[in-house]
Design a protein around this nucleic acid. Structure first.
Lengths: 138, 138
DNA sequence: TATTAACCCTATAATTTTGATAGGCTTTAT
DNA sequence: ATAAAGCCTATCAAAATTATAGGGTTAATA
């Protein structure tokens, strides 16, 4: 399951996508719309900005806005950013690799091999679904 | 990512699959093979037995053994049993459904719709990969 | 029938991760 | 100058995960 962080990030991105015409959007408005903590959301938007998905305007009249096209924001990226690995095991993670302590020989581990396949197939799905797909469904 | 519980369950099932000829296998042997806690593994094997994947023999000379064919143990089942939902959000879980607090109207939520698709496609993968596939790779 | 070895079961403790809050700093419109 | 907004870091609280404890029950066997 996705963490609330990632879930809220998706809601925020969706909200920003829907309100693109309005220029900037307040954290406050997004938080209120979904009844979630302003401060918690603030941290999330900060991460999304640092990762290059959002732009912001400081000071009075400021706010956030999308700086990428919705079709260029795949779920895989958002999930990796906020939740970490997509792979089911650290030993097959492309971006967050770590060996499994209980595994003596990765090269001869059937679990490792199958999980690498699962990762590849899962990635295909999550790289193909983008914010644009979400917006279409709203 | 899978919890250690699920990961250890997969290792245990793999071990039992590999040692099928020997009749029963001791918790102790599996735990030792992978350097994991005997007691933690004991709880996991208990769950696998209750779920119908393993049989056990009590008392001296006892142990665990597979009672299903490896091809009839899909990853989806093991993951659901020990980790819970496969869906990325509670609001699209088939087996552990819960509404999302921050979502006002599920029927009009683009995230919900996309995640339902992701769930379906992910399930296809995880229902198709079985213990047999893992054993082949050992 | 006593002993020992093994699984059975429930409770609880420890640790880690996640979720949430706090509070001051900086920037900008007016 | 003031107020409104994001920036940033630290810390607290809650929940989930991981691990342990300890006695109960069953069965083989000497």
């Amino acid at each position: 399951m996705l963490s609330k962080k990632t879930k809220y990030a998706l809601h925020a991105l969706t909200y920003l996508g829907k309100h693109k015409a309005e220029g900037t959007v307040l954290i406050h408005d997004i938080a209120e719309e979904h009844g979630i903590s302003h401060k918690f959301l603030e941290n999330i938007l900060l991460e999304l900005r640092k990762a290059g998905y959002l732009g912001s305007k400081k000071g009075k009249g400021g706010g956030y806005y999308l700086i990428k096209e919705p079709k260029d924001i795949p779920l895989s990226r958002v999930i990796r950013l906020l939740d970490g690995p997509i792979a089911l095991l650290p030993c097959v993670s492309l971006n967050y690799y770590e060996p499994c302590a209980e595994c003596k020989d990765e090269a001869r581990c059937g679990i490792n091999k199958v999980m690498a396949q699962v990762r590849d197939e899962t990635l295909k799905i999550l790289e193909n679904k983008t914010l644009e797909d979400i917006l279409k469904g709203e």
